[in-house]
């Protein structure tokens, strides 16, 4: 478990103070895959580096498994770090050592016996699918393979937490996929809590169960990925969500849309159960509302289907109101889309 309590971090460079983190509080529960997303400069890298005390907070506390890292002596802190693995954007492998020796390093630092090291390293290389590369140098590997070595190395000392600092940002989409699946497996098979820093919403969508959105050193939104994706409140969050889920009408639909008397446009968001019920059918049948579908899309997040439909509804105002209430009762989030007609149509 990781907990940050009202953490501030200020850097002083050439007498200029830079506030990287401004009062961050968050809680990562055991077994979570917790994603932190933000644009570059949002402070997310500083944030993850606080969790293993590569950076010390200027104010506030960082607790790992309930213990305040700030209260530890240097020696205790080093011991605590063995429980926190970390992987990096640029892998940070020793170029002078073979894959085997790279993975072995944390065990060498722990002064394990040769036989023990051999057994554990072979097991780890097998797990990440690189058994045949034990004798290769990092320079002979592809980016994805290097990150697998990084992961094996991070897992060597049996940590309960794995920190991923932009771990897939230097990889192509396909390799990113395979690394993310590996992280998911680590989380599931070893029950390791994973914390991921990224600027790619697809990473969050793919494996995270919780997400925090950062901007200018603050967390502007956090919660379960399903909630944040389903109902992004902050503009930045909406922009991120837009990169993976299209949820607005195309320009050509908006251009041809007729504004008729008594017709209104609504965005309907379905999640989980509500996505499988014939709600639209009901409102047409029971409330005599005309439905014109302008846009529809479904996405799967955390094995839950998230659906968005934009409809133009037309009918008797009282009936329309009743139809909207009916949908709300059935867990459909209804939101009226105002300014949907493009300005050019009025000119």
């Amino acid at each position: 478990m990781i907990e940050l309590r009202n953490v501030y971090k200020t850097f002083t460079r050439k007498e200029v103070k830079i506030e990287a983190l401004k009062g961050i509080s968050l809680k990562v529960e055991k077994g979570d895959i917790f994603g932190v997303i933000g644009y570059s400069g949002a402070g997310k890298s500083t944030l993850i580096r606080l969790v293993n005390y590569l950076e010390r907070p200027s104010e506030g506390q960082v607790l790992v498994d309930g213990y305040d890292l700030g209260a530890y002596s240097d020696k205790e802190l080093r011991a605590a770090k063995k429980n926190i693995g970390m992987i990096f954007q640029h892998f940070n492998l020793l170029e002078s050592k073979k894959v085997f020796d790279n993975v072995a390093i944390p065990l060498v630092l722990l002064k394990k016996s040769k036989a023990e090291i051999r057994k554990r390293v072979e097991e780890l290389l097998e797990f990440v699918g690189l058994s045949d590369k034990a004798g290769s140098y990092p320079s002979e590997l592809s980016g994805g393979q290097k990150q697998r070595v990084g992961i094996a190395r991070a897992l060597a000392s049996n940590p309960s937490i794995l920190l991923c600092d932009e771990a897939t940002s230097a990889l192509d989409p396909q390799t990113t996929q395979s690394i993310l699946q590996l992280l998911k497996r680590i989380n599931a098979e070893y029950n390791i809590t994973v914390m991921i820093i990224t600027h790619e919403m697809s990473v969050i969508q793919e494996i995270c169960n919780k997400v925090a959105v950062m901007e200018e050193g603050r967390i502007i939104e956090q919660g379960s990925v399903l909630d944040v994706f389903g109902e992004p409140k902050h503009q930045t969050t909406q922009n991120f969500v837009k990169t993976v889920i299209q949820n607005s009408m195309t320009t050509s639909v908006r251009r041809t849309l007729k504004t008729e008397q008594g017709s209104r446009v609504y965005k309907l968001n379905f999640a989980g159960e509500s996505a499988s019920e014939p709600v639209l059918y009901e409102i047409i049948r029971s409330y005599n509302v005309k439905v014109n579908i302008l846009f529809a899309n479904t996405t799967e997040i955390q094995e839950t289907t998230l659906g968005t439909i934009i409809v133009q509804l037309q009918g008797d105002p009282a009936q329309l109101e009743a139809a909207l209430n009916y949908m709300k009762q059935h867990e459909v989030r209804v939101e009226e889309v105002k300014s949907y007609v493009l300005d050019i149509d009025h000119k």
């Binding site: 080093r78 605590a80 770090k81 970390m86 990096f88 020793l94 944390p106 630092l109």
Partner: peptide, 27 residues
């Protein structure tokens, strides 16, 4: 030597002597 490697060493909880011996010098 790539500072990232020293960062990785620090993240592993290496002592300053271990950083020199196992990371800095070999690289």
């Amino acid at each position: 030597v790539n500072p990232g490697i020293l960062e990785a060493a620090e993240a592993m909880g290496a002592t300053p002597l271990q950083v020199i011996w196992y990371f800095l010098l070999p690289e």
